[in-house]
């Protein structure tokens, strides 16, 4: 069953230029999709249309077979959570507890239920020790985990990460990506927007966007074999795969591919 169905979606901020140009694709339940592209390729705009923050001028978006409109947006947003790039600009609460509660408060979840969900999800993402801490006492990685707990507590099952790792240092970033991997294995549908091929490589499928259009969308392994897509779009392959491409030996390629997709 398709979790998300996007049909012929176009969006423009101004009249001169289409930021999204006739975009169509679908995502199945439990899949992990990476959307790759440079700044201005339209990938963040796409993410905003998926959670109903922007309304496309034409085309339709269906989430779980319900069409996303102004009327259905409130209910569908319970299913789709989004984590943004800047950890500081999405932390609404004065403390970690308040922030995890924010989405639930909006859904009118009873207080007792909120308290138990906060305990559960804080533990799940590993911030249970910081519940009373203020954001200025947390690292960027911890703030992003709090953001994840906030949307998990709303019982979302589609998680969108809009460059959520790009402001973190490489070590914290690795931690977070591995955590996202765990969530995906538990059954969450994950859409990860990134400009780093090293991150995209962990996904089941990769979508490459350019000037508001999808230029490639396929299984990760298939896409990585097509060198020209990467060259044309100035996307740098992971170093190990670049070596494999240069050596042109099947055995070497297999080992390095295994190595890359594991780490």
């Amino acid at each position: 069953m398709n979790m998300i169905d996007v049909q012929n979606v176009s969006f423009a901020y101004s009249e001169e230029k289409l930021t999204l140009n006739d975009v169509s694709f679908s995502i199945k339940k439990g899949e992990w999709i990476a959307i790759l592209g440079h700044n201005g390729s339209g990938k963040s705009t796409l993410a905003k249309t998926l959670v109903g923050l922007l309304e496309p001028q034409s085309g339709e978006i269906h989430i779980n077979s319900t069409r996303l409109t102004e009327e259905t947006a409130f209910d569908l947003r319970k299913k789709v959570g989004i984590v943004f790039q800047n950890p500081d600009n999405q932390f609404v609460g004065v403390t970690v507890r308040d922030d995890i509660a924010f989405g639930m408060e909006n859904l009118c979840v009873p207080r007792e239920e909120m308290l138990s969900r906060i305990d559960f999800y804080a533990k799940k993402v590993g911030v249970e020790e910081y519940l009373d801490k203020q954001p200025s006492n947390l690292s960027g990685g911890q703030k992003q985990r709090v953001a994840i707990a906030g949307i998990l507590a709303m019982r979302s099952d589609i998680l969108i990460f809009d460059e959520a790792t790009s402001m973190l240092d490489p070590y914290t970033r690795n931690d977070l990506i591995h955590y996202i991997k765990t969530l995906n294995k538990e059954g969450f549908t994950v859409i990860m927007i990134t400009h780093d091929v090293n991150e995209a490589i962990l996904a089941d499928k990769i979508m490459i966007m350019k000037h508001g259009e999808i230029v490639a969308f396929d299984q990760t392994e298939t896409i990585l074999k097509d060198k020209s897509v990467f060259l044309e779009n100035h996307l740098e392959l992971p170093v190990a795969l670049e070596i494999a491409n240069l050596v042109e030996d099947e055995e070497i390629r297999r080992i390095l591919w295994e190595y890359v997709s594991e780490t």
């Binding site: 170093v239 240069l246 070497i252 080992i255 190595y259």
Partner: peptide
């Protein structure tokens, strides 16, 4: 560095004797 890590991996898996300290993929 990623070049070193990749070459170390090859050494291990294929029992090769590569000089792993290479600065570029080339």
């Amino acid at each position: 560095p990623n070049t070193v890590k990749a070459l170390k991996q090859l050494n291990e898996k294929l029992n090769l004797n590569l000089d792993v300290y290479q600065k570029t993929p080339e």
